[in-house]
Design a binder for these strands. Sequence first.
RNA 1: GGUCUGUUCGUCUAGGGGUUAGGACACCAGAUUUUCAUUCUGGUAACACGGGUUCGAUUCCCGUACAGACUACCA
Length: 511
Amino acid sequence: MKEVRVRFAPSPTGGLHIGGIRTALYNYLLARQNKGTMILRIEDTDQGRFVPGAEEYIIQSLAWVGIKIDEGQGVGGPYAPYRQSERKEIYKKYAQQLIDNGHAYYAFDTAEELEVMREKLKLAGSDNQQYGITTRNLMRNSLTIDKPDVDSLLRSETPYVIRLKVPENEQIHVNDLIRGEVIVDSSQIDDKVLMKSDGMPTYHLANVVDDYLMKISHVIRGEEWLPSAPLHVLLYQFFGWQNEMPQFAHLPLLLKPDGNGKLSKRDADKMGFPIFPLNWTDPKSGEISEGYKESGYLPEALINFLAFLGWNPGTTQEIFSMEQLITAFSIDRIGKAGARFDIQKAQWFNQQYLKAKTDEELADFLLDSLDKEQITCTREMAVKICNVMKERVTFPQDFWLQGKFFFHAPITFDESVISKKWNNDAVKVLHAFSMEVDKATGFSAEIAKSLLEQVTASLGISSGKILQALRVTLTGGASGPDLMMTMEIIGKKEVCRRINHALATLKIHAS
RNA sequence: GGUCUGUUCGUCUAGGGGUUAGGACACCAGAUUUUCAUUCUGGUAACACGGGUUCGAUUCCCGUACAGACUACCA
């Protein structure tokens, strides 16, 4: 089998969509599994849509999720340059080759003329308003204009494009690794523009030429490319490269969580989940989109989640590291149908990966959050907090968000707990408990527990009845990690202070 | 409209001519827990429809419906 060389070829038109990450991932998995090469090529042939910063963003995003580029933009390689805008001359040469052997032609039609042609066809009730077999003879191109006139038009710098001359009555077979054989009649393919009037190639030409020159073995891309795959096959034939043609695999699409259609940034915004891997600021509008990273997703969790959207190992194993994915991956097990995007599953993966980390590792997250809040905390305490909280967090920032009470006395108290549990018994117990804690020589979860038992026993009140009240005085909330450990972490003095403060300010609601 | 692609629990999916159609997420219930969470146990829930082929079809074939993609001098 020939060397596996795959490419991820995004267009730098904005933030890198999460679906793009999945495409990159499948390419990467195939490359690694076969000791092949992962190539990053930037498809920036549309100068009108170029967005500054997008290319760097793509590179950083791939790096963050752990997809390493072996060759291409940012790392270099034997087939440089890897930015298509810098390969203009190459495409020009190949386009000329197509012209020379009659597979392409010059077209001088203006945008208005094209519009008129389409309108006419529409009015005539035609299904097919393409610039192609049936219409090319009616248009202004080198097929209808005499050669001397064409030459003078070219010399006079009249804007022109180069179009592919699609053959008549041909069945074009595309062999897709995921979908099998797809057959399309050439009448369905239009005379696609290969070279634009600004001298840049279109995707179709650039993609085929580059894949050939870069010796790409597999083209793994989204299903939205399936309709133009026959056109690409045609190009390989016209260039005489059919033996070097890569294998195609058109991936099922990532769909909106509700309803139908391709997952878009709009849906993500609406449902409140990220669409981009990292924070992305639109340079035009200044709009900031929060990324997966900044939202608290771990790259390994995101990758695991994405890998399972459209592929599965055929076993019941759910958790896969990148290494395991590389081993288990196979194109045969990629599904055909689009996959709805379910952020809940992503959260579950995140939780799994977070829980698998050591307290030490988790402490880094907490310390990080605290740093931003300008709160100092010893590493030892951070480790302890993470230990008691790790079973209840989904995101790294939850340690801080759900554990603020470790650092600040509560400002408000949960109303429902107060109204239900803040009664005479609770006040009695808490008052006595606070005094006992104050008197105690040492303090720990153990000590707190036995002191509380003593107090409740001597007052004849069951501890279950007042624990909620105790929690609310300490944390302000109705739920949280183990109360005794919480007290140990908060410390003796602060425990007394918070209880006494609550005792002094809260009115008895219940009896 | 045309072309292409697709359709198994709410979601991701396994499976495949004869199965109690399996797993995971989510949801619900029970157990554990000082609360919540975790964990454990259990539960609800699916082969789009209609024809064929066949002893038998969810599985194969053909239609229909529905959905999506594409239909640019965008990728």
